[in-house]
Amino acid sequence: MPEPLFELIDVVKKYDGRTVLRVKNLKLDENKVYAILGPNGAGKSTLLRLLNMLEEPTSGRIIFQGVDINRAGESARLRMRRQMCMVLQNTYLFNTSVYQNVAYGLQLRGVRGAELERKVKEALSFVGLSDFGSRRALKLSGGETQRVALARAVAVRPQVLLLDEPTASLDPDSVALIEKLVRRIHESTGVTVLIITHNLFQAQRLADEAILLYNGEVIEKAPVAQFFTNPQSDITRRFISGTMIY
């Protein structure tokens, strides 16, 4: 059995004494697409932030590629973080050109000169924005902004892609395009994708497995077919049938 990419053991995250996440055990494998589901405040974003090392767990262990990230030194943590990329819920593009936005992550990894230019162009072409390099990033539409955010993440060829509601507030065409891009990224690079979504159809379209979080706990983790047709938990049943009352 291959080693999981991530393993969370007794992970608890509290803010001001309030527990927002409590995961007894969760394993995430390589080369899979996971849909993270759950109502608002379930702890979905917190989970992704912990995996991306943007925050520390209050207690417990997070193992990434066999290494306990909370025990790793600062430089080791940075090396590990550079194997991931996250698109935040409130996508933020830097107040510069589209080119510079996409180049930033590569520059942090020491890519320079012709190689940098080639990789930025590849990434922009990947998301269908080849001609957008010189444009001001803050002048883009919502859909274009998300595509630049994806290009920025794809450019660095991460092993893990963390997407926090990447299609929220986008029109149906943009949603379809982003989904197509996520599928292409996964298929072409084998990147592990964790995507938070409130769109159950999107979860079924994109994911290999679905994970339901509720009140900070993992209620169910299962292949999407099983998750949606034969859920094991009553909470999952109520969640996917839309009858859950918070």
């Binding site: 940075l78 935040l88 933020y92 830097f94 930033y104 942090l108 963390l162």
Partner: peptide, 27 residues
């Protein structure tokens, strides 16, 4: 908050992320 987090998600160290925030606040 956002600029710092974004820089870190792209692989910036704390110092690199702080510098990015300062650059973003230049106006």
């Amino acid at each position: 908050k956002l600029a710092m987090d974004t820089a870190r998600t792209l692989g910036a160290s704390e110092r690199q992320a702080a510098w990015m925030v300062i650059k973003e606040a230049r106006t």
